[in-house]
């Protein structure tokens, strides 16, 4: 029965080819430092999952954002766990992505033929920081409100186009309901979409070129 089902799927999906190219691929002798990339991916998936859970109760409006988060923390069973994982996961993800990048730098894995993998990786680091920045505003508390005021004002100091950038970020000249809803949109649609797409490219490049070997004295 299972064998038949498998064969049916195999004919149509090519599962064994997929298995060979994705999972059963050869690699240089492994190293614990090489796990940080997958750890970043794991944290991204974790953030995605807990983030989706949070949107079930969260309401992105200045009138309700704060109260809805308090409700998640005290009114919903395991709400504290879901939000706690999301909160700490954000910090941990920035840390792990950064250390991963340092590891790639130290082993010079960004050199031929993996230049593009590095380039995409820089994009991933920036997007991760962008997720941190936009997510910080969503609880709509004193800390997030004022930190975002300053953060967006920094962009406003750019010569010539500063005010334009600041207005584009804030959705107007002040931090308001518009800022909250556009940060929400960026945090749950735009940035994660870009992140997922770039992660796809990053993974494709890793599979294409294989994981880099640790350099020895001759490299």
């Amino acid at each position: 029965m299972w064998r038949k089902l498998y064969q049916w799927l195999e004919e149509r999906l090519g599962l064994s080819d997929l298995y060979k190219s994705l999972l059963d691929r050869p690699e240089p002798k492994g190293n614990w430092w090489n796990t940080l990339g997958s750890a970043s991916l794991f944290l991204f998936l974790m953030q995605g999952l807990t983030g989706i859970f949070l949107t079930v109760y969260y309401t992105p409006s200045p009138d309700h954002a704060y109260d809805s988060i308090q409700y998640i923390m005290t009114g919903v069973r395991f709400g504290w766990l879901i939000r706690g994982i999301h909160h700490w996961g954000a910090s941990l993800m920035v840390l792990v992505v950064f250390i991963h990048m340092l590891r790639v730098f130290v082993t010079a894995s960004y050199k031929y033929p993996r230049e593009l993998t590095w380039l995409v990786g820089v994009g991933l680091l920036l997007l991760t920081l962008g997720m941190g920045f936009t997510g910080y505003l969503l609880p709509w508390n004193q800390k997030s409100y004022w930190a975002t005021t300053v953060g967006t004002a920094i962009a406003g100091t750019a010569p010539f186009i500063g005010e334009f950038i600041m207005k584009a970020l804030r959705g107007g000249s002040d931090l308001s309901a518009l800022t909250l809803s556009r940060f929400f949109a960026a945090h749950i649609w735009i940035l994660p979409g870009l992140l997922a797409a770039l992660i796809g490219v990053h993974l494709y490049l890793i599979i294409k070129h294989g994981e880099s070997a640790f350099p020895d004295k001759d490299d």
């Binding site: 994705l22 999972l23 059963d24 691929r25 050869p26 690699e27 240089p28 002798k29 492994g30 090489n34 796990t35 997958s38 994981e211 070997a213």
Partner: peptide, 10 residues
Amino acid sequence: KGERFWPDSL
């Protein structure tokens, strides 16, 4: 001289 992604690295 290396290993396989699944399961050695994974």
